[in-house]
Structures are given as C-alpha cells and as structure tokens.
Design a protein around this nucleic acid. Structure first.
Lengths: 222, 222
DNA sequence: GTCTATACTGCGATAGAC
DNA sequence: GTCTATCGCAGTATAGAC
C-alpha cells in the first residue's frame, strides 16, 4: 500500500466545529479542485491555489497537512459525489428507462461538475496512483452487480445480447467526454463555451443511439 | 499567439543527416512520449526521460532546445500519425462500412498507440495550451466536411437523422476510452493489462451498438 | 558529439512573530 | 487563528572539459 492509499483509506480528519475553519476549508477545496482540474497534481502549485482562494500560502498548510493531503481530500469529495448517484438498480426495472436515466444523470454531472470529471480522468490516465484504494474488491463487486443486471435483461430478452461491461464503458466514456474534452468541443464549434443546448442535444443523441443500439425503445421524455 | 503555438507552427527543425543524431532523437522522442503520457507535461522531468532513454541529461538539451520544444515535437508526431489516418471519405461510400471501419481503426490506434491518445487527452483536459494552433480554421473545415457527409447520408435516408457532430464525439470518446482509461479497465477486470480479446470484444460491441443505433446494418466482418 | 559539474529558479514546507 | 520570511530541495538549463 502506497502513500496515496494510506491517505485515502484513513477516515476523514476530525472535523472541528470552528465556523472559520469550515468556511476556509471549503474555500480552499474549491480553489484546489479548480486548479487540479486544469493543471493536474504536479502541475498545480500551492501558491496558485492560495492565490485563487485569496489566502496566504501558509494557511493551506495550516488546514491541510500537505499538498498530497489536500489532493486526496479533493478526490474524496469527488468520489463521494459520484458514488451517491448510482446506487439503486434492480432487475425488475425497465431497461430503457434506467439507461436513459443513467445517461441523463451522467450528462448532468458533466455539465455541472466538469472539474470533478477532469480530475478523475487525469488521475486514471496517469495510472491511478491515488485511486488504487478506490478500485478495490468492493468496487469490482459493485461493478459486477450492475453488469449482472444488464446481463439478466439480455438473458430475459428485454434487450439485445450486449456485453454489459463494454456497454457500461460506452456510457461512461461518451458522457464524460462532454466534461473532459469540453475544450476541444468548444474549439470545434467555435463557441466561447459548451452551451446548455449542446448538452441537451448531446444527451438526446446519446440516449437515442445507445438505446436503439441495444434494441430498446426510448421511454417518453420526462 | 502563445509560446506553444509559435513552436508548433514553425516548420520542424532542420533534420541534419547524422545517423547518430537520427537514432538518438528517435530514442529520446520515444522515451519522452512514454513519460509525458504517464505524468503530463509538468509532471515529467528531463531526468526521467534521460533515464528511460539511457542517456545523460545534458544530451537531451543538445538535441532539443528545451523541455517545451521536446514536448511540442512529441505532439507533432502524434498529430501527424492521427491526421494521416482519416482522410478519405465520400458521400457515395456505404455508411455502415465506413462507420465500422472508422471504429475499428480508432480502436487499433488505442491498442497500438495508447500513449499518443493519453498525451492528447491530457493536453485537451488541461486546456489545449499546446494545441490552439491545431484547432484552427483548417481543422474546423475538416470536421465540418466529415459532418456534412454524415448529414448527407441522413438526408438521403441511408441512416437515421442523427446529429453528425455528436455522433463523431460518440465514436471518438468510446474508442479513445480504451487507451486513456486502460488503467481503470485493468483494475475492474482484475487483469494485469487490457488484453487483445478485450479490444476485440469492445470493438465488436461498439460497432454493433453504434451502427444499429444509427439505423444501419453491420457489414459482414472483414 | 558526449558528459560532468554547477548555476539558477520555483516550489513545498516550516518557524516564529503577531 | 493568521501571515511574513526563509530554508532546503528538485528540476531546468548551461558551461566547459574531454
């Protein structure tokens, strides 16, 4: 177990009740997320975070043990955010509704929390140094559980016999793309930023193609 | 125009004919690609590249002006590689064959040149500092050209009316995922690395879902 | 053309006054 | 709890011997 794992698997540091503390920690975490998303772990300097948070550099070290600790804390927030979103799933659900809903939810995440997706992406691309603890047996179990539901739907003839693992990858990649590669999209469309309309049209396209591709009929739009 | 652009838009440095030079430059570029893919621009140190290339650190500065110059050279190699791959496309082609071929080709890239994809991804995620020159009017023109062909197919009733831009994003993201997120895949499957079989099954799944999702019938496997 | 030794800079982290 | 001043190191880049 490496340094990252140790930091992640520890329980969150005791939250003292100070109002100032709470406020400043939030401020720092938010500034750090912004910087890490844009420059990666190594590319981000404590000074840059301090500057963005409008706080003296030394204060960061007062609230967080060190740069890595701060990064791990940011990552924990992201994982909590994501894990909370996709808990409920049962064989009895309607495949079309579930898939459409999943795609819609993930696209909303990409639109509202693009930094989270970017930090996660950079972390995975550069080898998951910080996430080895996250991809543990529990996680594989969770993944297998979802895949099993998809498989059951296929076996029951509710959808085409699609490999569940690759289907999940398809949904993850195509939705996260709108967060991670927003800069490329922006430059291709020539817009200042990716608009809400782009997201809506992207969501609609993904739902349409993926559901039909699995032999499902899209549910009425909610 | 920033420093990156200036470096990229310049013609490649004069290639002197020395055999040693040629060999060492290749060696360095290859080692650099490996390191940049794993640690990003800032996260990579010249010493690490030198170590991997089994060359003294000072030699890198002899062959390349500085770290940025080396990075830009690596990026140029990648872009040449990619741009050369998808030139031919005509309205008269068979949509199903073209899409299947495109997906297959991109998946081969992900399998054989994963670092290229990773470096590109990190660059885009962190704001395309080095690629602003690449996403120029020519590139948008190229993109619009491809999109127009897809649109023409839709208009002619050869495929469902899918938004061409989002369809291209779907293909890009789902195929590049197998390079960029190989570490996540590896950890989920519990394998030491993503196998050729995973790639084949992924390719097959993508072709199947995307083509059917566009109202196309997959061509006989080649 | 190769490599050692070193100058210089920027960053993470801390000491210690307030 | 806040902030200035500073230490020490890692990393880029270069000078200059061979």
């Amino acid at each position: 177990m490496n340094t990252f794992d140790a930091a992640l698997s520890k329980s969150p540091p005791v939250r003292r009740t100070g109002r100032i503390r709470q406020k400043n920690e939030e401020l720092i975490l938010s500034a750090a997320a912004e910087e890490f998303a844009r420059h990666g772990f190594k590319g981000t300097s404590m000074s840059a975070i301090a500057l963005r948070a409008a706080l003296p550099k030394a204060n960061l070290h007062y609230y967080f043990t060190n740069k890595l600790g701060l990064y791990v804390e940011v990552m924990r927030h992201i994982l909590e955010l994501w894990d909370s979103a996709f808990d409920h799933l049962s064989v009895d659900d309607d495949p079309a509704a579930v898939l459409a809903d999943y795609i819609r939810t993930k696209m909303e995440f990409s639109r509202k929390q693009p930094q989270a997706s970017k930090i996660f992406a950079m972390e995975v691309i550069s080898g998951c140094a910080c996430l080895s603890a996250h991809f543990n047996e529990d996680y594989r179990e969770w993944f297998r559980g979802r895949a099993a539901v998809f498989q059951a739907w296929s076996d029951a003839g509710k959808m085409d016999p699609i490999d569940p693992m690759h289907l999940i990858f398809l949904i993850w990649s195509s939705t996260q793309h709108y967060a991670d590669f927003s800069d490329q999209i922006r430059r291709i469309t020539g817009q200042r930023r990716v608009t809400k309309e782009d997201f809506e049209r992207g969501t609609e396209t993904l739902i349409r193609v993926i559901l039909k591709g699995c032999g499902l009929t899209p549910p009425r739009p909610s």
